[in-house]
Design a protein around this nucleic acid. Structure first.
Lengths: 122, 122
DNA sequence: TCTTTATATGCGCCATTTCGCATATAATAG
DNA sequence: CTATTATATGCGAAATGGCGCATATAAAGA
C-alpha cells in the first residue's frame, strides 16, 4: 500500500476541477474511447479535448495508446484501490448532474466499435 | 432528491483543489474547531486560514458561528447525502497522505474544549 | 511523394486564484 | 472609552489556468 503525497491529492482534485475534464472522465468510466468520439459526444473542439485529456493523463487517471491514426483513452488500470473507490463514489455524485446524464445518453446512442472491427466513421 | 448542477460540482472540486483547504476540511471532519486552533495545528498565518475557510464556506461544505471573539467552524450539517458519502470516501484517500496523518496527530494532542467549559488558551 | 485524417502542442491573451501586507470589524476586559 | 484578542477582508502583485489560433506530428492512403 503506497503512500500518497499531498501533491498527488492536489493534482487529483485539480484534475477534477474543470467541467469538461469531469465529463471526459465520466465518459471514460463507461468505456474506452478515442478522441474523436469524445469530441462528438461532448460537441467540443479537438484541441480542448486533447488538452484536457492531457491533464487527466498527467494526473495518472487515464492512459492512452495508438491504433492507426486514432488515440484511445481509458481509465488507468494501475490506479490505487482507494483512488478507484473514491472515483466510484464520486461517480454517484456526478451522475446527479443533468449535463452528465445527457452526455451518457448521447454516448449510449453512439455505436461502440468492437476490437478488430474496421474503423467506420469519425 | 435535488438535481446537482455541473457548476456545483465544479465549485465542490474547486474547494478541494488546494492543499491547505484539504487539510482544514479534514481537521473539521474530526471535530468542530475555532480558527485559532486550526492556525496552531497547521502552523499557518491567520489570514490564510480565514481566507480558505471562506472558500469552503462559500462552497457550502462548512458553516460557522460566533462564540465571544471566537468563530467556530464545522462541517455543514445540511449537505446532501451523496456529497457526504463522497467526502467519507475521499477521507480514506486523504488519510493515506503523511501530511494529513501528521495533522491529525497534532490535532489529537491539542485539547478539545467541551461546550460550556471556560475558554482556556489559544 | 503528396494528401488526408487524427491528434498534440507552442504561444500569447485573458480570467481566476493565491499571497502577503495592512487594515477593518467585533467582542471582551479594564 | 481604550486596549486587547480573535477574525475577516480590501488591495495590488504574482502565479496559475483555460482559451483559441495556428502549427507540428504521425499514420495511412492515393
Amino acid at each position: 500500500m503506497a503512500h500518497i503525497k499531498i501533491n498527488d491529492l492536489t493534482s487529483f482534485h485539480g484534475a477534477l476541477n474543470d467541467p469538461l475534464r469531469l465529463r471526459l472522465l465520466r465518459l471514460l468510466m463507461e468505456r474506452e474511447l478515442c478522441v474523436c468520439e469524445m469530441m462528438r459526444v461532448l460537441k467540443t473542439p479537438q484541441y480542448k479535448v486533447s488538452r484536457h485529456l492531457g491533464v487527466l493523463k498527467k494526473a495518472g487517471l487515464i492512459r492512452d495508446w495508438r491504433e492507426g491514426t486514432w488515440i484511445h483513452y481509458e481509465i488507468a488500470p494501475a490506479i490505487p484501490g482507494v483512488l478507484k473507490e473514491s472515483l466510484v463514489c464520486l461517480r454517484s455524485l456526478w451522475d446527479q448532474s443533468s449535463v452528465i446524464k445527457h452526455d451518457l445518453r448521447i454516448l449510449g446512442r453512439s455505436s461502440a466499435r468492437k476490437p478488430g472491427e474496421p474503423v467506420v466513421n469519425c
